[in-house]
Structures are given as C-alpha cells and as structure tokens.
Amino acid sequence: MAVMNNVEAVRATLYDALKNDDRTLILGEDVGARGNVFLITKDFVNEFGPERVIDTPIAEASIVGIAVGMAMEGLRPIAEIQFADFIYPAFNQIVGEAAKTRYRSNGEYTCPLVIRTPYGGGVRGALSHSVSIEALFYHVPGLKIVAPAFPADVKGLLNASIDDPDPVLFLEHKKTYRLIKGEVPDGHYTIPLGKANVLKEGSALTVVSYGLYVHWALEAAQKLQEEGLSVEVIDLRSIRPMDKATILESVRKTRKLLIVHEDNKFGGIGAEISAMVAEEALFDLDAPIRRLCAPDVPAMGYALPLEEEYMSSPAEMADAMREMVRF
C-alpha cells in the first residue's frame, strides 16, 4: 500500500500494464520523448521502446483510428488524447468505429481499446484546456465511460478498462491529478466498470457526482454533518454503464436527489440520472430532483471570475444540499 496522487496512480498502472502484458502499448501526442505533458509516461519510451510508446503526429483521428485497428487485431492499445478538448477530430473513430465494432462484426471482432484523456477545469485552462466531454459520448451504446476521483479507483478502474474487451473512454480530471492523494493497494486489482461507490452514508439526501466534484460534494456533506444534516454521497466512478441499482437504493432511502457535475446541465449526465430516477422511483421522491451544474455557456472562460462562475464550489454545493434537506 503506497500513497499516490492521481498522476502517480495512472503512471503506475500503465507501467504495470506495459510490463506484464506484451500486447499493451501507448500511443499519443508527446507520450514518448516528452513523457506526456503531465509526465505520466516519463521515461517509458526508454524502457519499453518507441514501438510500444509511440509519439504520434497531432492528428487525433489517426491516433484513435490506428488504435482501433490494433485492438481489432489483438493488441491492447492505450491511446491518449492530450487534452479532452482535442478529442473532436476522433469523434468518428470513437463513435462510428470503436463503439460499433462488436455489433457490426456480429461479435467476430471486438475493440479492446482504452482512450485516456485529461478533462475538466478549475486550473485556468481557458477555453481549450477545460472541457468536460462526457455528455457528448454518453449517448453512444457500445462505449463505456469511466471518470474516477480517487487514486485507488484510478488504478482499479484503469486495469479493468485495459482488461475490458470493448472500448473504454477513461476520463482523468486534471485538477485532481496532483491535488488528490490516497492509498493505493499493491499489485494488480480491478474495480468493476459500472459500479458506483457510496462514499458517505446519509439519510436525508442523496448526492450523486463524479470526478473532481466528488471531493467537493464530500467536503460539503461533511460540513452539513456538523450541522446535523445527514447527506449520502455517491461517487459514480463509471458514468456509463450507470449503476442504477446503487442510485435507486439510495434515493429510495433518502427520498431526495441532488446531482452535481462540472459539465453543463442541459443534456448532461444529470439529465439521464434524473430521468432514470423519475421513471423508476417517482413515488419515493419527496422533493423535485435537482441538478447543480455549469451554466449553458460555450466554454469556461480564462478570467478567474469567469472560471469561478462556471465552476461550482463546496460552499455552493452545501447551500444546495441544505435547501434540499430542509425542503
């Protein structure tokens, strides 16, 4: 058991994968000589060579397209999109190819591909280094989406993603990279995809989140605990498949649901969770479902006030929680 931050957890997991399975390889912009912009793959190319740690041109469609071919032919590529903001050129390769491979070939081919990418804001990343892309891919059957918040989950879920026979979009919140530290078990282990984690039990309100906001929601819930208000916090960990059972079980207990995410509200992950709960547990609800999300503006601004306006905060979350508990 070692204490790591999220960068170290990704790095350690990737290293073990390359070390233990010859089929694995990493490809992306600056993953080789530069060792990734966050130094996740630093020195990997020296140990595993340029054929398994491949520096690619700035061409995201090619990165994913090549990786799809590799995966279909038996390799275990781990493709990196340097920032999630740059993933759009690869949209067709992810949605049109990777996600449909198994279906199109009637199961003859699968696409065991992991696409890692740092996402999210709060780091003064401005318009093209702050986006949340999950909702754009959430609609696509055949694609799994993972967004861990803790180092131990990073390792277990990344291992599960590499092992998974189908494509997984692995989202790493860049603000948590070095901010969040935690103990990480030694050795190889996996955490099942599609399984949420109840981080804190509570009785008066269920809060569902993922990524950076899990930490803030937890902080807010602990503050409310001191005020005598009992809030349950669920970390989705996997956005798709959605862990309906855990969410429903919690909502049926607390009868109130707040969803917080950094992505904007309209058509976001919270919309799907909200609809699911309304469909399946309406008669357990004692308050309207609420979503605390980003405003519908095209991007997170660079100016600090704009960034703060776009992002939520533990204080804002605590306010929303108080209102809902007292409703």
Partner: peptide
C-alpha cells in the same frame, strides 16, 4: 392551506 398541503405533497408523501 389544507388544499395547498395536498397540492404540494410529493409523490413519496402521497404514497
């Protein structure tokens, strides 16, 4: 007020 109480009763409360 009574009617208001009924109107504002959530699905869970009604159930």
């Amino acid at each position: 007020d009574l009617e208001m109480a009924l109107r504002k009763a959530s699905p869970a409360v009604r159930k």
